[in-house]
Amino acid sequence: MTVAQRLLTIGVIVLGTMLTRFLPFLIFPADKPTPGYVRYLGKVLPGAVFGLLVIYCLKNVSLFSGSHGLPEAISIGVVAALHLWKRQMLLSIAGGTVCYMLLVQLVF
């Protein structure tokens, strides 16, 4: 990408982000009830989108070549275990990342 293309991409991301933040204030007057379908999506969409994002992060992992996704699997296990144990977001993220860095640099 050229610098101009990069700036345009950033601009598009800003536009998309601001659309999601401003839209409710533009389309839903505060004195009227929110449509049921919108409320339903608000309840169920986040869980599904976070699932999509986890898969997105792992999209380049190949089970049949290289390290067979083992460093990823182990480190995600560490993240989950730390998080269920202490429920400290930063500890879980830092612990899992350090674990992954050690695995790919020293073991695999």
């Binding site: 999601t20 919108v38 608000g42």
Partner: peptide, 9 residues
């Protein structure tokens, strides 16, 4: 960022 819609609401 769709979740922002629901923060906004």
């Amino acid at each position: 960022n769709a979740r922002h819609l629901f923060y906004g609401i």
